[in-house]
Simulated scan of single mutants.
Amino acid sequence: MSLHPLSGAEISDIRTQLHELQIEHRDLDLVITHLIENPPPDDLLIRRLKKRKLLLKDRILQLEEMLVPDIPA
């Protein structure tokens, strides 16, 4: 985590990024489902899309953590 509090502009930028990644993540989920349900599935493409989806999820979690203020122990 950063040692300084985020500015309003930084928070806004993070929220914008977060929203865009969440949309991409949802879209990938729809594409993967469509490919699986409409044979013949392209297994390599599905694996690549799932990997991208996992990377997006990790980045989404990182951005969400940046928006949560640190709680002193």
Rank of each mutant, 00 (worst) to 15 (best):
M1C: 06
M1H: 10
M1I: 01
S2C: 06
S2D: 12
L3P: 07
H4W: 07
H4V: 08
H4P: 00
H4R: 09
P5N: 00
P5S: 00
P5L: 00
L6I: 03
L6A: 07
S7L: 08
S7V: 04
G8D: 15
G8V: 12
G8Y: 12
E10N: 09
E10H: 05
E10S: 12
I11D: 04
I11P: 02
S12A: 14
D13P: 04
D13I: 08
I14A: 04
I14S: 08
T16I: 13
T16V: 14
T16N: 12
Q17H: 13
Q17C: 13
Q17Y: 13
L18A: 10
L18G: 07
L18M: 07
H19K: 14
H19M: 13
E20K: 14
L21T: 06
L21Y: 15
I23Q: 15
I23W: 12
E24C: 02
H25I: 09
R26H: 14
R26K: 14
R26Y: 12
R26V: 07
D27R: 12
L28I: 01
L28H: 02
L28P: 01
D29G: 15
D29R: 14
D29S: 14
L30R: 08
V31I: 12
I32Y: 01
I32P: 01
I32L: 04
T33Q: 11
T33R: 11
T33A: 11
T33P: 03
H34I: 01
H34A: 09
H34K: 08
I36E: 13
I36S: 03
E37P: 00
E37L: 03
E37I: 00
P39K: 10
P40D: 03
P41S: 12
D42M: 00
D42S: 00
D43L: 13
D43Y: 08
D43F: 11
L44N: 10
L44M: 11
L44Q: 10
I46P: 00
I46Y: 00
I46C: 00
R47E: 06
R47Q: 08
R47I: 02
R48G: 05
R48C: 06
K51Q: 11
K51I: 02
R52L: 01
K53D: 03
K53R: 11
K53T: 03
L54Y: 12
L54V: 08
L54W: 10
L55G: 14
L55Q: 15
L55N: 15
L55C: 10
K57D: 09
K57Y: 05
D58R: 12
D58Y: 13
R59Y: 06
R59T: 13
I60F: 06
L61W: 07
Q62M: 13
Q62E: 15
L63K: 07
E64W: 07
E65I: 10
M66H: 10
M66C: 11
L67R: 01
L67G: 00
L67V: 01
L67H: 01
L67C: 03
P69A: 08
P69K: 06
D70L: 11
D70C: 06
I71Y: 02
I71S: 04
I71E: 04
I71H: 02
I71M: 04
P72F: 03
P72I: 05
P72D: 09
P72V: 04
P72C: 02
A73H: 11
A73D: 13
A73R: 10
